[in-house]
Design a protein around this nucleic acid. Structure first.
Length: 483
RNA sequence: GGCGACGUACCCAAGUGGUAAGGGAGAGGUCUGCAAAACCUUUAUGCACCGGUUCGAAUCCGGUCGUCGCCUCCA
């Protein structure tokens, strides 16, 4: 089976074939940096992180571009309201670019914590004003855009395919009561490519049409094509950006180049919290920094991947608790595996786990539009078989055990980006912790030989209170970090 | 009003024509000084509801109810 992806453009799963053999160009809409990142960002960027990781595991050279929107756009209608970045900067009493820098750092800090690999190129909108102006000029030259009162609008009437991504028509838009009629626009569905800056507008750049700032959609077109070429393989983003953002990107990009823009459009679904949509404008969003105080970041990542990227994901304490328990089961298995490896003989028999079969199952799951929940189920299947083998108390050979360790490192670690930490689990330990715990275990073993259970339990309970869990097994006592 | 998605056990969640993955929680058991971990057994004759197509439907078609999203910045 080969990789199939759900292409929003055609509303079906399609065989994935890159434009240039062996190479994949992918662009994902990045965050607007005027606040801390939230759970929605986590779902989106973890999802695309796994997509990129999987493509790389298939042998593709992937160029992953993700923008940072540091030019503020407006708080409500395309023509009303205040620039979001400018507003927050005013509230915080700092320059807008300082605000953007602060939250760009915050964003990557959170993504690093979630084990999301950095994109290969992270272009800032403010650093690509020239490219955006140039593209607007091309569109004006082609008669697809017009200047009105210092602003430039895209004429949707000049692009008959407008609506092909979202399945809307210009007539639908007319019917909707929410499209603001703006005097200077020829048609209500026309969208801004460049906006005239009013006197108080801080972020402004000179342009052929006077001082202003770029429209919301133009940055993604200009930057994606600059780094990936005029037509490229994958464009990803949140489902809510399908319309109008991505629709407008297609119109202006294909209008400017006359070539197909993106071959596969991938959209991830939204996050809800206790059943309700989480959105910036609703004010009910949970920032990642708050989430990490409550749940282990690795568990958050695991939880996200336990549902499909095109399904909505509801965050609730009960669901996260379930995910944590499942995650710990895998972590325990891996820890047990490494303890066995440390004492395994060079020869010895195999575990009987059919890794070839499980590899194929994992690959098939991921080939089917990145079905991470099914792929994770395969991780559990291997864990169960391995634990069954361990339950029989045989002495398995090191090569057989190490093969399973490598299997997890590849499939769980490299592809899904989970189970990559210390097998002892979360928590930070200073350099003295290990030797000290080993010493306590040795002393406690003597105590246990004397059957002084009360004293023995006092040591175990005391260690548990400071985050060290002891497990007494036939082969001896082991320890792990607990939270 | 227009467009779209979804509704699978107590919870999370795969499965799009061949007889319900996986995880959590619960119950019972094995092991253990106890605990933990792990293993075994068990938990949906049924996949919102009602019709239809079919030898066969959670999966296809029609209808009903419900939930959510987009149409306005948002991942």
């Amino acid at each position: 089976m080969a990789l199939q992806v759900y292409n929003t453009l055609h509303r079906r799963k399609e065989l994935f074939t890159p434009q240039h053999e062996g190479f994949v160009g992918i662009y994902v809409c990045g965050p607007t940096v005027y606040g801390h990142s939230h759970l929605g960002h986590a779902k989106s960027y973890v999802s695309f992180d796994v997509i990129v990781r999987f493509l790389r595991s298939l042998g593709y050279r992937v160029l992953y571009v993700q923008n940072i929107t540091d030019v503020g756009h407006l708080t409500d209608d395309a023509d009303q309201g205040e620039d979001k970045l400018a507003r927050q900067a005013r509230i915080d009493r700092i320059p807008p670019m300082q605000l953007a820098e602060t939250y760009t750092r915050s964003y990557f800090e959170d993504m690093d914590t979630l084990n999301v690999l950095r994109p290969d190129i992270v272009p800032r909108a403010s650093g690509h004003i020239t490219e955006q102006i140039s593209m607007v000029q091309t569109l004006i030259g082609k008669g697809m855009a017009y200047v009105a009162n210092g602003s430039v609008y895209f004429d949707v009437g000049s692009f008959p395919a407008y609506g092909k991504l979202s399945g809307r028509t210009v007539e639908d838009l007319n019917a909707g009561a929410r499209v603001e009629i703006k005097e200077e626009k020829k048609h209500p569905a026309d969208f801004a490519l460049w906006k005239r800056a009013d006197a108080g507008h801080i972020m402004r750049w000179p342009s052929p049409w006077g001082e202003g700032f770029p429209g919301w959609h133009i940055e993604c077109s200009a930057m994606s094509m600059k780094y990936l070429g005029e037509g490229f393989d994958i464009h990803g983003g949140g489902l809510e950006n399908q319309f109008p953002h991505h629709e407008c990107e297609i119109a202006q990009s294909e209008g400017a180049t006359g070539k197909p823009f993106v071959r596969y459009w991938l959209h991830n679904n939204m996050v809800t919290v206790n059943g309700k949509k989480m959105g910036k404008s609703l004010g009910n969003f949970i920032t990642l920094k708050d989430a990490f105080a409550k749940w282990d970041p690795q568990v958050v990542r695991f939880f996200i991947l336990q549902s499909h990227y095109r399904s909505t994901l509801d965050f609730s304490d009960e669901a996260l608790d379930g995910a944590r328990a499942g995650y710990e089961k895998l972590a325990n298995t891996l820890r047990n595996l490494r303890e066995k490896i440390a004492i395994a003989p060079d020869g010895g028999e195999g575990t009987g786990v059919d890794l070839d079969r499980r590899t194929a199952e994992f690959r098939n799951a991921m080939d089917d539009d990145f079905n991470t929940p099914q792929a994770i189920a395969v991780l559990f299947d291997v864990a169960r078989e391995l634990n069954q083998a361990f339950a029989s108390e045989k002495n398995y050979g090191r090569p057989s055990l190490e093969a399973i360790d490598r299997w997890y490192a590849l499939h769980a670690g490299s592809v899904l980006g989970i189970m990559t930490g210390d097998a002892r689990g979360a928590g930070s330990s200073g350099p003295l912790v290990g030797p000290l715990v080993e010493l306590l275990i040795a002393i406690r073993s003597d105590i246990r030989l004397q059957k002084l259970w009360a004293l023995s339990d006092k040591i175990r309970d005391g260690l548990a209170r400071i985050g060290i869990g002891l497990e007494d097994k036939k082969a001896g006592t082991t320890w792990k970090n607990i939270s």
